[in-house]
Design a protein around this nucleic acid. Sequence first.
DNA 1: GATACATCCTCTAGCGGCTAGAGGAGCAAG
DNA 2: CTTGCTCCTCTAGCCGCTAGAGGATGTATC
Lengths: 146, 146
Amino acid sequence: MSQDNAAGEAVPIGEAARKSGVKVPTIRYYEQIGLLAAPARTGGNRRLFTHDDLRRLAFIRHARELGFDVEAIRALLSLQDHPEQSCASADAIARARLVEVEDRIARLGALRDELARMIDECACGRVAECRVIETLAATHRHGALA
Amino acid sequence: MSQDNAAGEAVPIGEAARKSGVKVPTIRYYEQIGLLAAPARTGGNRRLFTHDDLRRLAFIRHARELGFDVEAIRALLSLQDHPEQSCASADAIARARLVEVEDRIARLGALRDELARMIDECACGRVAECRVIETLAATHRHGALA
DNA sequence: GATACATCCTCTAGCGGCTAGAGGAGCAAG
DNA sequence: CTTGCTCCTCTAGCCGCTAGAGGATGTATC
């Protein structure tokens, strides 16, 4: 009836990957670096992931999508495991990440403008008069090239 | 009179690093991967960078800052070395990069909003009711977690 | 000269966060 | 029993550097 273990207790790694959106080798990698506790195994030595494991994997995936690095995720997970603590640390981690992201957006915006200008001004003739190349070659704030 | 080789012909790697804004080991790395031609050497086996080398280094640095990967830079440099060709390729490379950047900006924008909302809604009490953790744990579009 | 110190050299190994592939074992269906 | 899938472990590779060991060279001072 069920090829997809709808109500089941524990699932093998392939299904865990499908359900969590984390690829199979990545799941094993997370286990290896201790982000995910080693799951139970079958007699045949296959990993069996519980629903809790799947939730943890989804948590990790979401956090990675938000650009948190593994250390930050480790911290967030350990917070999650101690719900009686103050969540000030989680807040701080998220705030730090927000600052990073805003900074990155600002810099990418400048970058986009420069790229757009570069492309805009390129008449697409010979490389000799190509604005794209020229712009890249231009000496900048930093460069004190004689 | 000159400790900084103001009008000089060729400079050692440290000065090349200062002038181009590319770090010493990175310059050697660029040489190693063939992004920069191996420069001349002194009798004592030290690299000597010409002004041309410095311009090339600055070009590379600027392109890296704009997020071009090494392969793209290789292509751009080879275009620069053949100024009689059409610059359509340079244009295409830059356009592709612009698309990437715009995409990245859009995704970072969404991300910023999510982070901001997360932080905003967190009353900073116990982890148990922490929006930051909760948001990360929430099952998403992708997840079909039972 | 001798000495001190900065700069340079080559080489290997490591970072983060995976990803790919070899070589084999387990398991369910026909 | 064989086919074909999933799973296992292990090692090595990706990018773009960065760090460190261990040694040679260059320059300034005494």
